[in-house]
Amino acid sequence: MENFALIGVGGYIAPRHMKAIKDTENQLVAAVDKNDSVGIIDSYFPQAHFFTEFERFDRHIEKLRRENAGREVSYVSICSPNYLHDAHIRFALRVHAHAICEKPLVLNPWNIDALQEIEQESGKRVNTILQLRLHPSIIALKKEVEEKIQSEPGKMFEVDLSYLTSRGRWYQVSWKGDEQKSGGVATNIGVHFFDMLAYVFGPVVKNICHVRDAETTAGFLELKHARVRWFLSTKSEHLPAEVKEKGQTTYRSITVNGEEVEFSGGFTDLHTRSYEEILSGQGFGLADVRDCINVVHDVRHAEIHALTGDYHPFCRKVEK
Rank of each mutant, 00 (worst) to 15 (best):
D86R: 12
F194L: 08
P136A: 11
K143H: 13
G123A: 05
E215W: 09
I41E: 02
T165R: 14
F45A: 01
G285H: 03
L232C: 03
H88V: 07
I208S: 11
M156I: 15
R252S: 12
S77A: 15
L164I: 15
H305D: 11
I112Y: 07
N257G: 03
D23S: 12
H60A: 04
A30F: 05
D23W: 00
K246E: 15
F157M: 08
S236F: 10
G154I: 01
G281K: 11
V185Q: 05
L286H: 06
N82M: 02
A97I: 09
C315Y: 05
F157P: 07
V76H: 01
Y75F: 15
L307A: 05
M156F: 06
T249N: 14
D195S: 07
Q248Y: 10
I13T: 14
E152D: 15
D23P: 04
R65W: 13
F4I: 07
G190A: 06
Y83G: 00
V200T: 12
H297Q: 13
P104F: 06
L279E: 09
E242Q: 13
D58I: 00
A31R: 02
S174T: 13
F231V: 04
F314A: 11
Y199L: 02
E117N: 10
E152P: 00
F91S: 04
L161E: 10
Q172N: 12
D178A: 00
G219M: 09
T128D: 00
R169A: 14
E2D: 10
V289M: 01
C292H: 12
I13D: 04
Q180A: 14
S280G: 13
E2M: 14
H135T: 07
K317Y: 10
L107H: 05
D310G: 00
S74M: 06
G285T: 13
G177M: 04
S74I: 01
H297G: 00
L107D: 08
K155I: 12
R133W: 12
I189E: 01
A226N: 10
K181G: 01
R227A: 00
H312K: 09
R212S: 13
E260R: 13
E222N: 05
T217F: 02
L132N: 08
E260A: 12
R16T: 08
E259W: 02
Q150E: 13
I304E: 10
D86W: 10
V200R: 05
P240H: 04
A214Q: 12
S122L: 09
I7D: 00
E259C: 01
H225F: 05
N294V: 02
K206Q: 14
K63I: 00
G70D: 08
F45M: 08
E146I: 03
T255M: 02
S182E: 05
L239F: 02
G168M: 06
V295R: 10
A306G: 07
A140I: 09
V29D: 02
E67L: 12
V318S: 05
V191D: 04
V243I: 15
Y44I: 05
K124L: 09
K148T: 12
T250Y: 09
I293Y: 03
D178S: 00
A48Y: 08
E55G: 07
Q131A: 08
Q282A: 13
T24S: 12
S264C: 08
E179R: 11
T52E: 11
L307D: 10
P136T: 11
K224Q: 15
H301Q: 11
N207C: 13
K244D: 09
I129A: 01
R300H: 11
